[in-house]
Simulated assay, not measured.
Amino acid sequence: MKMSNPWLKVVAAVVLEPMWVLGMKHADSWFMYAITAFALVVSFLMVLKASSQLPVGTVYAIFVGLGTVATIVANWMFYGESLNVAQLVLIAVLIFGVIGLKLMEDE
């Protein structure tokens, strides 16, 4: 399956980001290290491919911003990390910033 829409590549990279970020902390077997490495490599390849078709600053900001949100939420869901109101407000600000970047992009 060929992924021609560059925004789908960004989404794929964002989905994979929590896997490798949390994998660096929680991997404890060769299999988990392999999954972590796979997610890292594919995630960055998707960012590189998307950046060839979209503004690199926008792609990177969305990748890092939404990847951070996804990592925080995954850490809360799977590892019981705390999530307070202040963190939720800051996550919302981050998401609105990412949306703003997308809306300001020149097509």
Rank of each mutant, 00 (worst) to 15 (best):
V69N: 00
G100A: 04
K9R: 13
M77S: 12
A12R: 02
V42C: 09
K25R: 14
I35H: 08
P18S: 09
S82K: 11
I62C: 01
N75L: 00
L88T: 05
E17T: 09
T71C: 04
V42D: 08
G65H: 04
M77A: 15
E105K: 09
L48G: 13
A61P: 03
L94E: 14
M24P: 11
V69M: 06
M19Y: 09
A50M: 10
L101M: 15
S82W: 07
I35Y: 14
K49I: 07
T71N: 07
Y60R: 11
A74F: 01
A74I: 02
G65K: 01
T71E: 08
I72A: 06
L101P: 01
F38L: 12
W76T: 04
G57L: 11
A12Q: 07
V41L: 12
M19F: 15
G65W: 02
A61D: 08
W7V: 06
V64F: 01
L88W: 03
P6S: 12
P18E: 10
A34I: 12
L83R: 00
M46R: 11
L8V: 05
G80R: 07
T36W: 00
P18I: 06
M24G: 15
L83T: 01
E105Q: 10
V69R: 03
A37E: 00
V14W: 01
N84Q: 06
D106M: 11
A13Y: 03
V73M: 10
S82A: 14
Q53M: 09
E81H: 12
V64D: 07
H26Y: 15
Y33M: 14
I95E: 04
